[in-house]
């Protein structure tokens, strides 16, 4: 598991809380994992699966119950606050009071672990701050107030702050949680680019599985009571590890499209033929939503079932015992299917 790119590794790690005098609430035990430089790692899991506890433990904000975390070879619990502040940078979902600071002033706060008693910035500090602001692409807003920024820009400013901190390991707690679709994609792409170009190890938790599967070099799948599966994204997908991420029978993982969907309780069945994969996918989507189970390339016993042939998006033919009906849109097809037979 140890390799030259490893920055953080955990052996037999047990995480959780101490409750009261001697009580311990263990959330996960016997975790083994490693984080690597130059890679974006995404931590996925349902709410309550222990993502935040794990991130807090790794950021040394809470001690592990047992086991060992080594950061660049040193025991994490033995490092001082000042040493930690130069090794691990965090981006959190906490509410801040920074509306009255300019982006530049906010990013400059990231230099605090490196500056002296009064926090005065020297030429090098200012250069690092400016590079960080440019790296996240908000140089044109450098002297705007934080309050004047959009949510996406605010998150970029926080990422610039963590870059100015110059830590080899960056941990982000749901960095895309409050962002719109465009900002989510921009933020994740930015983080992946930073991991690669600045050779940092970046770990983030997210519910945005779609983006994680596209951009994560590695996935950590955390499931309550089942420990954690770690691996390169594609290995985990193709091994079926994502199928059981959520402990629910009615939610399935679509390996071909990398997304979760609710499993279908169908009442009726239909045979589907489509000209290409895209047409097939969306035809099944429409039929499933309307309580139809779909059979593709059926066996001999399916001859009595109705059959839908989709040649293109405007040529849908429904073959039933009563004859053949043509539809030009899904709207008209669905209207027909909903009629009581």
């Amino acid at each position: 598991m140890e390799s030259t790119t490893t920055i953080l590794s955990a052996q037999a790690l047990s995480i959780g809380y101490k409750t009261g005098h001697k009580g311990v609430k263990q959330i996960h035990g016997d975790l083994h994992f490693a984080l690597h430089r130059g890679e974006l790692t995404c931590l996925l899991g349902a709410n309550g699966s222990g993502k935040s506890t794990l991130l807090r433990t790794l950021a040394a904000a809470q001690p592990p119950l047992s086991g060992e975390i080594r950061l660049e070879g040193d025991d994490l619990t033995g490092l001082s606050e000042r040493e930690l502040s130069r090794l691990i940078g965090v981006v959190l979902t906490d509410k801040t009071q920074t509306g009255g600071l300019t982006v530049y002033e906010l990013v400059a706060l990231g230099r605090q672990p490196h500056t002296g008693f009064f926090g005065r910035l020297d030429r090098h500090d200012r250069q690092v701050v400016e590079e960080a602001i440019e790296a996240v692409g908000i140089a044109h807003k450098a002297h705007s107030y934080m309050a004047q920024l959009s949510d996406g820009e605010k998150q970029k400013a926080m990422i610039a702050k963590v870059l100015a901190q110059e830590c080899p390991l960056v941990i982000l707690d749901e960095p895309t949680a409050f962002l719109d679709a465009v900002s989510r994609i921009e933020t994740m792409t930015l983080l992946h680019r930073i991991a690669t170009s600045q050779n940092k190890a970046i770990l983030l938790s997210t519910h945005d599985i779609e983006q994680a599967l596209v951009l994560a070099d590695r996935l950590w799948l955390l499931r309550k009571g089942c420990g954690m599966r770690c691996g390169v994204t594609e290995d985990l997908i193709l091994n079926g590890d994502l199928d059981s991420l959520f402990d629910r029978r009615d939610i399935c993982f679509d390996r071909a499209h990398g997304s979760y969907y609710p499993s279908v309780q169908w009442e009726k069945e239909i045979v589907v033929e489509a000209a290409d994969d895209t047409l097939l996918h969306w035809t099944i989507n429409a039929l499933n939503r309307n309580s139809y189970g779909c059979r593709i390339a059926p066996d001999g016993d399916a001859t009595s079932l109705p059959r839908l042939t989709v040649t293109d998006a405007h040529t849908l033919s429904l073959h039933t015992a009563a004859g053949v009906q043509q539809f030009a849109t899904f709207a008209t097809l669905i209207e027909e299917l909903r009629k009581p037979m």
Partner: peptide, 12 residues
């Protein structure tokens, strides 16, 4: 100004 947890991460 960033809150306790950010401040702690900055070595405060």
């Amino acid at each position: 100004l960033l809150g306790d947890r950010y401040a702690a991460n900055l070595g405060v």
